[in-house]
Design a binder for these strands. Structure first.
Lengths: 148, 148
DNA sequence: TTAAGTGCAAATATTTTGCTGTCAC
DNA sequence: GTGACAGCAAAATATTTGCACTTAA
């Protein structure tokens, strides 16, 4: 489904501009793709979707934009246990951390937020004297539909 | 430090043989490297260490052996947040799952076992109707020495 | 004996870099 | 105007595949 050419600037774009990052046509497009994604996309999928909106966008620009977003802590990088290849998947960094459960059979990825995980982070900070900046939790297993 | 040529068969080797997997000289060497590793090694590091014991070992054989071990659930694959490149790191699958804390400044990786994490898995199994087979937890942040 | 495994070469996949011209501010 | 950014080509990195020879069981 095509996206309107002139879209309300999303949170990512606003965040970057607030930090004084130069906003180009290409970046706006790529950020839009990431913000409106309904699933976790990898670099190639982001490229394909971006090129539907602006065919001149280059693969390299996608990588550079992803790197920029990572540097600013605005996206998280996942590999979803490599169920679908060796690349990485991206999602806007959420307010609260969440876990990713990937079904080893059907490949579906479900997210889960948990108080217990927040407590676990607290425990790590205290016990390990480790100041957590980002987390990444991926679990492989079988979802309700696929479990035998 | 060089390893004795004839080593007591480690747990990995025993596990594979119990499952009827053919045991070759090369595999024995590679399994030995993984079992005696003191840190998380990537494919290239495993290759280098294996070649010190048997220079004829090929990179491809390392990848094939790692794939075999993954298929049998005998090693876990990590990427340690790509602090040291885009490859993957391997560790023998532990009795109890643990978390990996990687320092964004010095790169040190610390492991942590937690009851709370076991409870979290239980919660996921119940709430999400998801049967967990493997987990992977990586946290980036600053260790006691590096935190400002 | 023979199916599975190995090394070698080449292919594929993913990401990065160098350079030149362009654009946001 | 100028420093940051884009596109293109090529390189670098990581992993897999095809094939002929070798070896564990």
């Amino acid at each position: 489904m095509p996206m309107p050419k002139t879209e309300a600037p999303g949170r990512l774009q606003a965040e970057l501009m607030a930090r004084g990052v130069r906003m180009t046509r290409q970046r706006r497009t790529i950020l839009g793709v990431i913000e409106t994604a309904k699933t976790h996309l990898d670099a190639s999928q982001i490229l394909r979707k971006a090129q539907r909106l602006d065919p001149s966008i280059d693969r390299v620009t996608v990588y550079r934009t992803l790197k920029l977003l990572k540097r600013h802590g605005l996206v998280d990088e996942l590999d979803l246990l490599h169920l679908r290849g060796d690349g990485h998947y991206y999602e806007r960094r959420p307010q609260r951390d969440h876990l990713h459960m990937a079904c080893l059979r059907c490949g579906k990825v479900v997210e889960f937020e948990s108080r217990l995980f927040e407590r676990l982070k607290g425990e790590v900070e205290r016990e390990c004297h480790f100041h957590i900046m980002l987390t990444r939790v991926e679990m492989g297993g079988y979802c309700a539909n696929c479990r035998t």
